[in-house]
């Protein structure tokens, strides 16, 4: 790279026109796949991600079943067309790792011990990627789980914060992630003030790290409100239209 990209200009505006602590526009939709037990879709900036949940159901292969709790399986996958250069559809090292950390983020939230010898299968399909897909994936997957009627302690919501162009920024996009100094994805259960996923790459001082985490948690709380709204929207619309015709 010969020319240095300006990630944050002198007015504190980022490459996509956002302020430092501003989220990308988010659109959430619940229950969009009829064949899955639960499903949801998210658009966060240019990210487009679909999540589907099956289960609890019988475990195949049988020997993987756990006698004391449900088996949670998670697949994070990026479609070959989700990035600029075609991505091989085979799971890459990165996808295998993300599947694991996302699964571990959900394990404390779901009442797995209520359904021994069954499996809950979670699929996160990235259709278009623009940085921060693991966070958007967690956010949308928790909606799919709630839609499937799987009992949970809390919805999980995830958001990243980091440092780009010398400033602490919220919800990094692809360029900020690649060219920036650091990125911290955080998954969070707001009702318990508990963090269930925390990763970091890049370099930050201790103070910057703490500020970035607080920034990410603030972002999480904003997205949490959107999540609740999206879940209610699916039923509220039917309720209103049905009760309006009632009054007529």
């Amino acid at each position: 790279m010969t020319e240095k990209i300006v990630l944050v200009n002198e007015d504190g505006i980022r490459t996509d026109g956002r302020k430092l602590s501003e989220l990308r526009p988010i659109k959430l939709e619940v229950g969009i796949l009829s064949n899955a037990d639960g499903s949801a879709y998210i658009e966060q900036g240019k990210n487009k991600i679909l999540a589907a949940v099956y289960g609890p159901r019988e475990v195949h292969p049988r020997h993987m079943a756990l006698p004391d709790r449900a088996l949670l399986r998670c697949r994070y996958h990026m479609a070959p067309f989700s990035v600029e250069e075609r991505k091989s559809p085979a799971p890459s090292r990165r996808e295998v790792e993300l599947s694991k950390v996302i699964r571990e983020a959900f394990e404390p939230a779901i009442f797995l011990e209520k359904f021994p010898r069954t499996s809950i299968d979670l699929f996160i399909e990235v259709l278009q990627a623009d940085g921060g897909t693991r966070c958007a994936g967690v956010t949308v997957a928790s909606l799919a789980l709630a839609d499937a009627g799987i009992p949970m302690r809390d919805l999980i919501v995830a958001c990243a914060a980091g440092k780009a162009g010398g400033h602490l920024v919220l919800d990094l996009n692809d360029i900020e992630d690649k060219e920036g100094e650091a990125d911290i994805p955080v998954a969070y259960m707001p009702s318990f003030n508990a963090v269930s996923l925390l990763q970091m790459d890049g370099l930050l001082t201790i103070e910057e790290f703490q500020q970035a985490i607080n920034l990410a948690l603030e972002g999480c709380k904003q997205i949490y409100a959107l999540q609740k709204e999206a879940l209610k929207a699916k039923y509220q619309a039917i309720k209103e239209s049905a009760e309006v015709t009632e009054e007529e």
């Binding site: 009992p151 302690r153 707001p190 609740k228």
Partner: peptide, 29 residues
């Protein structure tokens, strides 16, 4: 929605709810 705090204090957690530190939360939509 799951995780919503429904009540705090001396209550019993019925269907699709759970109790944590004398707080009742929803566990399902």
């Amino acid at each position: 929605t799951p995780g919503d705090l429904l009540a705090e204090g001396d209550y019993l957690a019925g269907f699709n709810t759970y109790k944590h530190d004398s707080k009742i939360y929803a566990s399902r939509l």
